[in-house]
Each structure stands twice: as structure tokens, then as C-alpha cells.
Design a protein around this nucleic acid. Structure first.
Length: 260
DNA sequence: ATGGCCACGTAACGTGGA
């Protein structure tokens, strides 16, 4: 089973790129973030034409998440039931495999704007209740994938040298991410040898991509049971080279399991 | 020089992203 995450920064703009990418990278499950379009405008037919189905939760202008998949996801949850929130930032679904059901939780975590701001406090509160939700999900499911745009770079090696500012790397943010990890999750990317200066996001400004001035903030976290059967994790920088790219690149992991 | 880009909504900028 191949699973990927990609913050597309507007599915309306990026739909052709997503379709092209799926045809070249026929993953089983693709988690999207920042659809930036209302639920009713989600173009399911375009995915069905190439052999996928989907579940999604959108809103006008901001946020929005979707899970594109080869088989239908079950027990779909939209938003964290423990955290009342008009912002559509979470969707979860279960996929049957020959290794048993795998619970996939797709998140678009808040950016936080600036340390100490209202949005920063919202981010930390959002993370706290995400942790409580994921904890309850892990009690119900052996196999859990928590993936998406976390808007936190876990370690200094996930941050380019010239990065200014403390949002996305502040100790309280990293502690919030660590609390999730401490539930028994593993950063699949770090299970394998990786190039130095591997990032998943690059600023549109200042020729960020060309200078490789990026951050690694998009992650695929997996439960202990899946760690044992995770074969690789990599970042696909190719879509970032396209005309009108998303500022994020897809992250892909392979798990030794087959959708059923 | 602390900006620079991109997308959105509504109609020439303001907001948000990271």
C-alpha cells in the first residue's frame, strides 16, 4: 500500500497537477490539504475517471481536506469530535487491507501565524485536542496513519539554515508534536536514510525552491505495527518544479499491505 | 530594506499562508 500526503494550496488550481501526479504515481491513498473550495465544488468525477474514489470536507476560501483512494474509506469522521471548529482541517477513514484495517487520519494543522498570537494559541489548543482524538483512535485501531501538513518542523535538520523567526519551530510547537509521537507513532521519513536538507515546503518568495530554502513540515506518522512493515518514505520534489506549483511537495510512504 | 510570491474574494487591494 502506497500512501501519500500533499498540501495542494487550492485544489481548484492544482486539480490537473493532482490528476497527472496520480497517473504517474498510482498510490492507493492520497491525503490532500488546503482544498480552498467549498464541499459542493469537489470534483469527484475527475478522480473517478482515473479509478479513484474520495471523501472530503471543504469550506469556502480556506482549509479543506480530502482522502483520495482506490477503495472506499469506511467510518469517515470529519473534524475532531473533541474540538468544535468551523475550520475544516481533519478527515479520517478506515481502509481494509490484508494486514487488517488501517485507520488513516488526514490533517491540515493550523499555521499559527506568529508565536504568541491568537492563531498560535489556537494552534496549540488544536494540537492538544488532536492528541486526545488520536489517542482514542489508537485505542480502537491497531494500525494508524496520521498524515498531513503539520506546520511544525520536528528538528533543526528539518529547517534551512537561513530560516528567520520562530513560528513552526518554537519549543511549545515541537512539544505538541512530540506529544503525538509519544502516543506511539513514528515519523516514517526518519526510519530511513535521507539526504541532508530534505524539505517538503519552500517559500514562493526569494526563490525559495531554487535555493532549497525550505522546511520539512509534511509528515507521515505511523503506529508501531506499521513501522514493522514500512518499506520507504520519500519526498517527491518533481511537482514543485512545475509551472504554478503548490508550495508543498508530496510525501510518499510504502507499507507492506494490500488494499482489499 | 524584515519585502520579495501566490490564492482568494471582490472588483484594486486586504487577508492568509509558512
Amino acid at each position: 500500500m502506497m500512501i501519500a500526503t500533499w498540501n495542494v494550496n487550492s485544489l481548484k488550481i492544482r486539480l490537473p497537477q493532482v490528476i497527472d501526479w496520480l497517473q504517474e504515481n498510482p498510490v492507493d491513498v492520497l491525503c490532500l490539504q488546503e482544498l480552498k473550495q467549498d464541499t459542493e465544488f469537489f470534483d469527484l468525477a475527475s478522480f473517478e475517471e482515473i479509478g479513484y474514489t474520495a471523501c472530503w470536507s471543504g469550506q469556502k476560501t480556506y482549509n479543506g481536506v480530502a482522502i483520495i483512494s482506490r477503495t472506499e474509506g469506511k467510518d469517515i469522521v470529519r473534524n475532531n469530535p473533541l474540538f468544535e471548529d468551523p475550520q475544516q482541517r481533519l478527515i479520517a477513514a478506515t481502509f481494509e487491507t490484508d494486514q487488517g484495517p488501517i485507520r488513516v487520519i488526514d490533517v491540515y494543522c493550523p499555521n499559527g501565524s506568529a508565536v504568541g498570537s491568537d492563531k498560535y494559541e489556537y494552534k496549540l489548543a488544536w494540537y492538544k485536542e488532536l492528541t486526545n482524538f488520536v489517542k482514542s483512535e489508537m485505542e480502537k485501531h491497531q494500525h494508524v496513519v496520521l498524515t498531513g501538513d503539520f506546520n511544525i518542523a520536528p528538528e533543526d535538520r528539518d529547517v534551512h539554515e537561513g530560516y528567520k523567526g520562530d513560528i513552526l519551530i518554537s519549543p511549545p510547537e515541537r512539544a505538541a508534536l512530540q506529544e503525538l509521537i509519544d502516543l506511539g507513532l513514528h515519523d516514517s521519513f526518519r526510519l530511513f536514510e535521507q539526504e541532508e536538507k530534505s524539505f517538503s515546503w519552500w517559500d514562493y518568495r526569494m526563490m525559495g525552491f531554487r535555493r532549497n530554502a525550505g522546511l520539512r513540515i509534511d509528515h507521515i506518522l505511523i503506529s508501531e505495527s506499521l513501522k514493522q512493515i514500512c518499506e520507504f518514505c520519500w519526498i517527491d520534489k518533481e511537482p514543485r518544479r512545475l509551472e504554478r506549483p503548490s508550495d508543498h511537495a508530496p510525501v510518499v510512504a510504502k507499507i507492506t499491505a494490500t488494499l482489499t
